[in-house]
Design a protein around this nucleic acid. Structure first.
Lengths: 243, 243
DNA sequence: CACCTCTTTTGACCTGCATCAAGGCAGAGC
DNA sequence: GCTCTGCCTTGATGCAGGTCAAAAGAGGTG
């Protein structure tokens, strides 16, 4: 775990804490200062574990840069990723001392952190922060439920297409063709999709051979026609973003 | 859709709205009256659709008696149940006019309802209701993520054992052997578990032949040893309740 | 460059669950 | 009671994706 230079935060932490700007549209001036005084930043390298499943988690916060994964593990070692956190996503759970999932940095990662007890006090004192957090939690719940459809009913090819399309849309810079760097290894993708690494690899190859995507090195991906990829994913063309 | 006699509500609606007692532990006396004045009750028969996916949903509320299902459907008809609502569970989404999922009465069902706009006003005026709702939403999110592990990684037998164990524990009256009435048809179970109806049936038969459960008619189920069933489910013995 | 390690791809084979197709059984209505 | 209808179970077969094994890249290091 390395130190993050807080002076970088002004630009990087656009939407923090919990989508700072959105929240603070209704903040008084000194509320912003109080929030700012409570923040700290911490960084991790790709692959580092932030908390283990069940371990105490004395902070909450949000992703500033990079990408983190939430994973549940069965006793025999089977693993399922249950969330993929991107910048501005919330980490941790007010009102609960232990992490329900393992949290791992998928890429190099910086979090904006609050001590949990201080954050809980803020929730009580500042209702609009609680309202914003409720809204975000309900969005997360919808995303989790959408992903249940992916896990329960989609074929391997549809699953991979769904994930790639989501990543492409999030990273979207409206270039043509659409490009993105995959924040996940093949193994992490398999863990997310309820597949094995071999199946993920085969399906990616299949999509490449069908001309739906192009690979640029190990992590780079390009997509000439997102709507074609979405059809392959079994979604209607304007299917919603899934976490 | 039939009318529910509000006079029955006093007993039945122990935890409504949004676990009324829990909320109202910190309510003033007249807050309770105001909440009560906003409520209404409505009942549905087993199998009736309450709202279709994407249709306008002008109310929110909570389950008083019975059991409802939340389901997402793909264009080609594949369906995945994404939530199973039991008494005291919350229905609907403040801040959103349309239902994200189809809601169906799995059994005969009574809901305690609030007009959505009135409820949203209450959320703004009564912060502890919002806090309670946040807490409930985070619990739902954990449950949804736990179910992702079931869908993504468990075998058919483990899935069925997981569902049956959850139902038995919810209905638990601490009798021995544990008994419950299944609120779901085989088809609904299949939709929940990401399986087909035939596979569900075969796995139930398998669990019965292994002596882990006994069937009592079509809907009745008994379990002589819950911890044995939980081991079959791939959980540790005190695995948590899953929605 | 050679060497090592880690990730990804590819191949061959197998199995768990889906699919297709009959039956069986319980409750409702006559 | 009989029959109809809607669930549920059972059987036979096929295939998608898992498993096991090996090879091919892609970095990193001396």
């Amino acid at each position: 775990m390395s130190q993050f230079d807080p002076s970088l935060a002004t630009e990087a932490c656009i939407q923090c804490p919990i989508r700072h700007r959105a929240v603070c549209a209704s903040c008084e001036g000194d509320e912003i200062d109080r929030l700012a005084a409570m923040k700290s930043y911490r960084s991790w390298h790709a692959g580092e574990t932030i908390v283990m499943e069940g371990a105490p988690l004395p902070f909450v916060g949000s992703v500033v840069t990079g990408c983190a994964t939430l994973t549940r593990t069965m006793e025999d070692g089977r693993m399922q990723m249950v969330g993929l956190l991107m910048p501005s996503d919330f980490v941790g759970r007010p009102g609960r001392a232990a992490a329900a999932y393992e949290v791992v940095a998928a890429t190099d990662l910086t979090l904006c952190l609050f001590k949990r007890d201080a954050f809980e006090r803020m929730l009580r004192d500042t209702p609009h922060v609680g309202q914003r957090l409720l809204e975000m939690s309900l969005d997360e719940l919808d995303a989790a439920r959408d992903w249940m459809l992916v896990l329960g009913r989609k074929t391997a090819r549809e699953k991979v297409a769904t994930l790639l399309a989501n990543i492409l849309r999030r990273a979207s810079t409206d270039t043509h063709p659409l490009r993105a760097e995959l924040p996940l290894t093949r193994e992490a993708m398999a863990t997310y999709l309820g597949l094995t690494i071999e199946t993920v690899s085969r399906q990616i190859t299949g999509l490449r051979k069908a001309g739906l995507i192009a690979l640029e090195g190990r992590r780079g991906i390009a997509c000439p026609d997102l709507s074609a990829l979405l059809i392959e994913a079994g979604d209607d063309e304007d299917g919603r973003l899934i976490d």
